[in-house]
Design a protein around this nucleic acid. Structure first.
Lengths: 195, 195
DNA sequence: CTCAAGTGAGACACCAGAGTATCATTAGAG
DNA sequence: CTCTAATGATACTCTGGTGTCTCACTTGAG
């Protein structure tokens, strides 16, 4: 139904690269919605022959594996510069949210595919991302941005889910993309009760 | 790893009934963790022959369908008496949460299977549950329990996800089952910032 | 415009899981 | 304890998805 960032399809790349990225992009969205989706479905959505998929990925497993690595790279790339800024916990939180909400698809994908990953290395990527939020939660508590009475695991889990929920709600068209990060932040810190 | 409410297996029922419910219960948990799980896996976990499953459910589709209906019934049964109490929005919220968190598995199951439901009737059950939370959110806003500046869709979505997250976190063993409802309530209303 | 690289369509073998049928074994009601 | 209903094991077919291959068509760089 919705169309995705077709604008980001770089026309200056070679034909091969374009096809490859088209498959990668669309596969991500199809599989995020339905992890059971067949290669035929993916091919159809990507407007590509099923055989073509096999020209770029030797198996379904490898396709999924690449998607996961890609998702991880995107998150890593977005987050690293923030950490290097060495901000206080509160500001780091704000920047994290701002950057992660639009990456909800990647975020979610990494989560929902953790189950199927027979591949051992992929489990590490997932755990690594979780660790990030746990670390941040710890700092938030240490710097008293977050009440220390609340279990750490709960803080991290809620933060993780708020970000994903925001992305999902934006996708449904229920809230504006530009409003999302602020909503996550205020919900996280202050909840919904009137001030 | 974890064992489930085996205590609820009623020994006074007939052998057939016990087998049937054993399959139903375990299938719910297996499929909640991995929607792709094969009937062999379910049979194994339920300590039952694969053929036996087919004696009680004419197809995998029907098994899943029954699980969904069952999940819906559980939620319905839990929620109805609360609504009939005619409490104010705030108290209704509290009771809802108290009752829904332990039903996280059913809650989640209804959610995650909505996608696969070719069956039209099942979609209605899902929409019905979503409606409940939307209704409650509307009342919360009307009675000024929740700030009216926040989009309704966002309130409902967060409430839905907080409940699911709580159940998930309990399952992981990261928070105590008895603490969960209170955590959801305070997180929802006040967020994590220290008072 | 030309033509090679890239692609789509389709036929095929292969496999895993769904669903069926049969029979020997076992649980447990009476 | 007995005997039947219920079960587990096994062997089978069928279906849908995966992965391979070929060939004719299209695209777009030169």
């Amino acid at each position: 139904m919705e169309l995705f960032d077709q604008a980001s399809v770089n026309k200056s790349n070679s034909r091969q690269t374009r096809t490859r990225e088209k498959v990668l992009n669309l596969a991500m969205h199809v599989l995020a919605k339905n992890p059971k989706a067949s290669l035929s479905e993916i091919a159809e959505v990507a407007e590509v022959g099923r055989a073509t998929i096999f020209r770029y990925f030797k198996s379904r497993k490898q396709l999924v594996s690449e998607l996961i690595v890609e998702a991880d790279t995107k998150l890593e790339t977005a987050i690293k510069p923030i950490i290097e800024k060495n901000l206080n916990a509160g500001d780091t939180l704000e920047e994290f949210i701002k950057v992660l909400v639009p990456l909800g698809a990647s975020f979610h994908f990494l989560n929902s595919n953790q189950i199927y990953a027979e591949d051992s290395g992929i489990d590490d990527l997932y755990k690594n991302q979780l660790m990030r939020l746990r670390e941040l939660s710890k700092r938030l508590r240490a710097e008293n941005v977050v009440s220390s009475e609340i279990p750490l695991a709960w803080v991290a889990a809620v933060l993780d889910n708020l970000i994903y929920t925001a992305w999902e709600t934006v996708l449904k068209g229920d809230i504006a993309p530009n409003d999302a990060p602020a909503l996550v932040l205020t919900s996280f810190l202050n909840g919904f009760s009137p001030r």
